[in-house]
Design a protein around this nucleic acid. Structure first.
Lengths: 195, 195
DNA sequence: CGTCTAACTGAACAATCGTTCAATTGCAAA
DNA sequence: TTTGCAATTGAACGATTGTTCAGTTAGACG
């Protein structure tokens, strides 16, 4: 019979994820030990194995849930309209979603090489779905004559790179609000693909 | 009395650097052991300490020499002319320099958090000098009225991010030549900051 | 040809790694 | 209040870590 709500399990589980995310983002997966994560949670190392079968699965679950959240949020966002409006929607959605999730973005980008081949393939597939969403918008705009690019696939990767790079230097305590950043980046994106 | 040229030292030294660079780029600094590097070189682990005082210094030297090469190449490039020509020069220089150095770029970006605070500060300062070179071009173009941006500093970071992101997905065995990539990216950069 | 020493080996060091598991704890249900 | 079991402890495991160092080797020099 399972424990009721409020039992330690329901509290410790999320704590493990949060501690692992923070520590891995800061020091890197290979540099963080299970004992460090356990200490941050306030338990012994052995207790972590009630919440993950092993260290690799812990990393994978962090990345998988981040990508799942991203794709779910994108589906919910329901960006529609003409290609220009959809491109603006994608740009603002990307920034709005990623800026408050600095640790997740960091881990999802930096720790890909520490995933097992099977786990890597799953994350990569999800990332690809997200990239394809942008590429589809660009192709629609190209077909409609409102966008003009030398190479659509390369432009997709270039814009994704520009948007993702933002998470690597933006600081929430800096001089710029999220809304300001959104406007600046949208200006760059819009002009870059303008017909 | 030092050994003459052709001694093992002159051969093993570069081999250590090359092996460390390749392995760290592939698996990450913390995930690579001194014994793995030694095995790749063809020596025992203890022999590495003829070429580096410790593992941390080995990483720092890889990053320092990469950044030194970059800044030296930029100084030599001697990009001049009107702001538009200089921006094109910077864009093409960046791609031309970075594309054949995928491992160095990877290590220089992914392993910053594994540097000691003093070493980090040095690398960061060099990176800043490079970013400033782009920012100066953008400001000159802005003053001349040939560029127009919502925020010059943010645009600098956005363009650097876009250009650097290229190294993360570009494969030398892919469908696109370096010259083609240069042209595509220059097209995006030029339009993004156009007045 | 014999000498010297840079280069390297191979073993050892204490520390730390991920993971397992019998024993203990403490709360919820009966 | 007693019972049952989820949650956790704490110790242990074999493996591996970065680093040191006395001893061996081999190639260039006098």
């Amino acid at each position: 019979m399972a424990r009721k709500q409020g039992s330690h399990s329901d509290i410790t589980g999320p704590k493990v994820q949060a501690a692992a995310l923070r520590l891995i983002a800061q020091h890197g997966f290979a540099a963080v030990s299970m004992r460090q994560i356990a200490a941050e949670v306030g338990v012994q190392a052995g207790a972590l194995y009630n919440y993950t079968p092993d260290k690799q699965s812990l990393l994978f679950e962090l990345m998988r849930s981040h990508m799942t959240d991203l794709l779910a949020a994108w589906d919910t966002a329901d960006i529609s309209g003409d290609p220009l409006a959809r491109l603006e929607g994608f740009t603002r959605f990307h920034i709005h979603f990623h800026l408050p999730r600095a640790d997740q973005v960091f881990v999802a980008y930096m720790e890909l090489r520490n995933l097992s081949p099977e786990n890597f393939a799953q994350i990569e597939a999800m990332r690809h779905r997200y990239e394809d969403a942008l590429e589809e918008i660009l192709r629609a705009g190209e077909a409609a004559g409102v966008f003009k690019m030398a190479d659509t696939r390369v432009t997709t990767m270039a814009l994704i790179g520009m948007l993702t790079g933002l998470s690597h230097w933006y600081r929430t305590d800096g001089r710029l609000e999220t809304a300001t950043i959104e406007a600046i980046y949208w200006d760059l994106v819009r002009k870059a693909v303008a017909a």
